[in-house]
Each structure stands twice: as C-alpha cells, then as structure tokens.
Design a protein around this nucleic acid. Structure first.
Lengths: 132, 132
DNA sequence: AACATTATGTAATAATATAACATTTAGAAG
DNA sequence: CTTCTAAATGTTATATTATTACATAATGTT
C-alpha cells in the first residue's frame, strides 16, 4: 500500500476538480474554475499541480499541456505512464497494461543508460470518432 | 525510399541549425540564432518547425518543448518516436530499436482503439552523469 | 518552545505558441 | 507563357503556459 498523502487545502481543491472532470484539464482552465474558492494566481495552481504530479495523484499529458487524475486505483506508477489520446475528440485515458509496463520498465538499449522513468503517448481515433 | 522534400529557404536555415547543433533546441533559441539570416518573428520559426515535424526531419521532445533533428538516416518514422533523456545534463538521443518500435506499433488494448502514432520518452541518468 | 519543512499569497515577468491579415513564391494545368 | 492553386513568407499583435522573487503562514519534529 502506498503512503497516504495528506493533501493541503489548495492541493485538495485542485485534485478534486481534475478528478471530477474525468479528463485532462489545462492549468488556466483549472485556475478559472477555482477562483471562486480563493485560488487567484497561476502560481498557486502550478504549485499544487507540481506536488500532485510528484506524488502521483495526477499526470501531465505532455503533448497537450494538460493534467489528468491518475486512473490506476493504486496510483503507484507515476514513473511509468502510458496514455491513449484521440486526436479528434481529445479524449485521453490512461493505459494500464502490465505487459506493456513490464516491457518498458525493463527496456534497455546499447547506450548503457538505465531508465528510471518513462512516458508514452499513443495517438489515434477513438471508437466513437472512427465511426463518424 | 522516402519522398525527397525540397525544403524552403526558412525551413532549410532552421533545419540546418538544429541538425548542426546535435541536440534539442528550443524555438526561441532557434529564433535568436537565425535573426542574422533574416528570420525575425516567432511565427516564422514555428511555421518552419511545424513543417519539419510533419515531414519527419525533426521531432518535438514534448517534455522539453524542444526540437531535435531526426537521427534515423531514413527518417521515416516520425509516427513512432522514442527518446532517451538524461535528467541531469539534458542530453537527448533518439532510440532506434526495431524490436521496441515493432512492439509499440503493434500494441493494442481492450479499448478497441487503433493507434496510428506514438511518442515515448525515457528518463534517467546518462553514463557520464551517473558516474559523477 | 525552537526549528525546519512545506504550503500559501501576491506581483511581476518570462517563455512558449497562435491568430489574423497581406503578400510573394513555386508548381501544376491548360 | 499564362492562369490557377497551394505553399511559404512577412508582420503585428496577442494568447497561452510557466516561473522568479519575495514575504508570510501553517504544519510537523525534536
């Protein structure tokens, strides 16, 4: 079982928002949505995001500059992330596939570099968008 | 053999710069470096970058907002990219591993989504930085 | 209580990227 | 070689994403 992190006030507000949204959210959209709760400045948002990423409660979708709640209940693999992204509707979901994560976590090449982390983003059309 | 693209003036200037640098370059650093050649505005840089990415001559390192020349001589796989990134010295190199690319290109999960593209970024310490 | 660590608040600004519009160049089609 | 079209360029302004710097407050530890 992972360590339980006690989120601070801002962290909790921002995590709850992202989590409830069910999809990726951008920093300034988060900011807009939490201003009524007293979070007024970008930095407050980015600080909370940084911490949430660090502890694995959310992940950053690098190609979209957006943040999504971790969808693995155990939430332990913020160092081994994979996402599927629909290029039409921008739906994003976290891929949780133990074969894939095992393959990538153990991957090594002739560079002699030992990888401690990876991020993988797959792109395509989701079922809905494909059938349009 | 892939189609030979005749790069336009700006595209060529910018590709040559990135290629010669041997590593990833950021858009505004590119801009600074090509101002003496008459490229004055960010948009001129971004347009050339967009095109170069599209035709696979360069790739974007998403986690770094930087662009690197394609290191696969054949340059055909801009839809299947993998990089190794040193978190200490920020050295980046393109991973060219046919087993890996085969594995990922054929990857599919229960979502029913067919992936047409992926980008993978590995992080760790390079040999040099590890031994420091 | 004293200290260290983490989190917060606030203002300013840096860094990254795109919109909108006018013009020019390069290829393709007749 | 001219007409048409697509691609590329030039320019200004602006939008979006993210960080620096500094002051204060809350939390956890010894």
């Amino acid at each position: 079982m992972q360590k339980e992190h006690n989120l601070s006030k801002n962290q909790k507000i921002i995590f709850d928002l992202i989590d409830k949204s069910g999809g990726p959210m951008k920093a300034y959209s988060i900011l807009f949505n939490v201003q009524k709760k007293g979070i007024k400045a970008p930095l407050q948002v980015y600080r909370a995001l940084d911490k949430l990423v660090e502890i694995g409660k959310i992940h950053k979708i690098e190609s979209r500059n957006a943040f999504i709640a971790c969808q693995n209940s155990s939430c332990q693999i913020s160092k081994a992330t994979a996402f599927s992204i629909c290029e039409s509707c921008e739906n994003v979901s976290e891929i949780s596939n133990s074969k894939l994560s095992k393959y990538l976590s153990n991957f090594s090449d002739e560079s002699g570099m030992k990888y401690s982390k990876y991020n993988l983003e797959f792109f395509g059309l989701c079922k809905k968008c494909k059938s349009k």
